[in-house]
Design a protein around this nucleic acid. Structure first.
Length: 316
RNA sequence: GGUGCCAUAGCUCAGUUGGUAGAGCACAGGACUGAAAAUCCUGGUGUCCCUGGUUCGAUUCCUGGUGGCACCA
């Protein structure tokens, strides 16, 4: 049995780099389809705040098919495990139809889960276990997790919630054989779009102003009216967190805008740190300057993609 | 115009009984496998408003400016 290498083109970059429009144009040229790698855009009804620019998927009047957007209801939970499963299903589907898969997004963990093929088993919530762990102290939970060997995830011990989940996963893995699936190895091209720091900040600030004009506050208000609590809105992204605090009168309008702007700048910086980390862990990223003429950048990306597709025997 | 108070990091402010200074936020770097736009770690970036004086030494005390705030006219 030979190991087949299947192609995957990835477009990543910090927020407000114009990834979506770029990936859509690239996919359009390559007869491809987009797989979103955005941990926020999976939620239905969260549009302005997650930057779900659906019009960007239309290139010269032609809609480019996209996946992994609007896959769950707002207010429910989603995570990297579910993302990986959803990705594999969509990816297989795209390949079977002979299309070129283009992964596009800025959620570093989600991207890396695909590009480095994280192994993740299905581990259901164990209510009995959780109830049992409820009474344990933080230190007790920590030593309990330590019984299962070295930490798989170094951020497992940052709080109780993560500790409990880590123990749940560790116990589950101990109780069953390690998964022996052999995923098709990816033949990967990773393109990264980045702007210089000052330009990145300008773009973020301008886009935030734009989103406020488009009705960001009203969107969050509507979600809250539908029954998503302020407490929950804290976890659906920066826009929802800050606007929710404004609606709850914890922040003034001015504090909300400036605080949100700052938080997005910090997030973009963290994204870049994550991407550098991915490079250190062995993922090659071809960086494209956002400041360059878009046509030149697109042609370069098309050329690089064709080399990859020819190598993997795909016809375009 | 008079009197009083204030002036220290990008911002808000501590502090130095005279030995050139430190918090929060901002900012920078890093970590990252089931909430990842999450969570966490590290780092002080400075004409201490200007001028003259006292002093071995002044951001600190004193003189005179400048700017701000308050009160009185």
């Amino acid at each position: 049995m030979h190991t087949e290498r299947t192609p995957l083109i990835t477009v990543l970059g910090h927020t407000a780099a114009g990834k979506t429009g770029f990936a859509a144009r690239l996919a359009h040229r390559l007869n491809g389809e987009i797989l979103s790698a955005d941990s926020r855009q999976v939620y239905r009804g969260m549009n302005i705040g997650t930057g779900k620019d659906l019009q960007d998927y239309v290139v010269d009047g032609n809609p480019v098919p996209h996946h992994l957007i609007d896959v769950v209801d707002a207010g429910t939970e989603y995570n990297v495990y579910r993302f990986k499963n959803d990705f594999l299903r969509a990816y297989t589907d795209i390949r079977q139809r002979g299309k070129v898969p283009v992964l596009c997004g800025g959620s570093g963990l989600y991207l890396e889960a695909i590009l480095r093929d994280y192994s993740m088993l299905h581990v259901p919530v164990d209510e009995a276990l959780r109830a049992d762990l409820e009474s344990r102290s933080y230190e007790e939970l920590k030593s309990l997790l330590a019984l299962y060997g070295p930490l798989h995830n170094t951020t497992d011990t940052v709080n109780r919630k993560r500790l409990v989940r880590a123990i749940e996963i560790a116990m589950h893995q101990g109780s069953q054989e390690t998964e022996d699936r052999k995923p098709a190895e990816l033949d990967s091209l990773v393109l990264g779009i980045r702007f210089e720091r000052m330009n990145r900040r300008d773009r973020i600030t301008r886009r935030l102003e734009q989103r406020l004009k488009e009705g960001l506050v009203e969107e969050v208000e509507a979600l809250h009216r539908q029954g998503i609590s302020h407490e929950k809105l804290e976890y659906y992204g920066l826009e929802y967190r800050f606007v929710s605090r404004y609606l709850a009168r914890i922040l003034t309008y001015e504090e909300m805008v400036s605080g949100l702007n700052t938080a997005i700048h910090q997030f973009a910086k963290r994204q870049m740190t994550y991407f550098r980390g991915m490079e250190r862990r062995g993922i090659d990223i071809v960086w494209l300057r956002g400041e360059n003429p878009p046509e030149d950048t697109l042609e370069r990306a098309v050329d690089l993609s064709r080399v990859l597709l020819a190598r993997s025997g795909s016809v375009i």
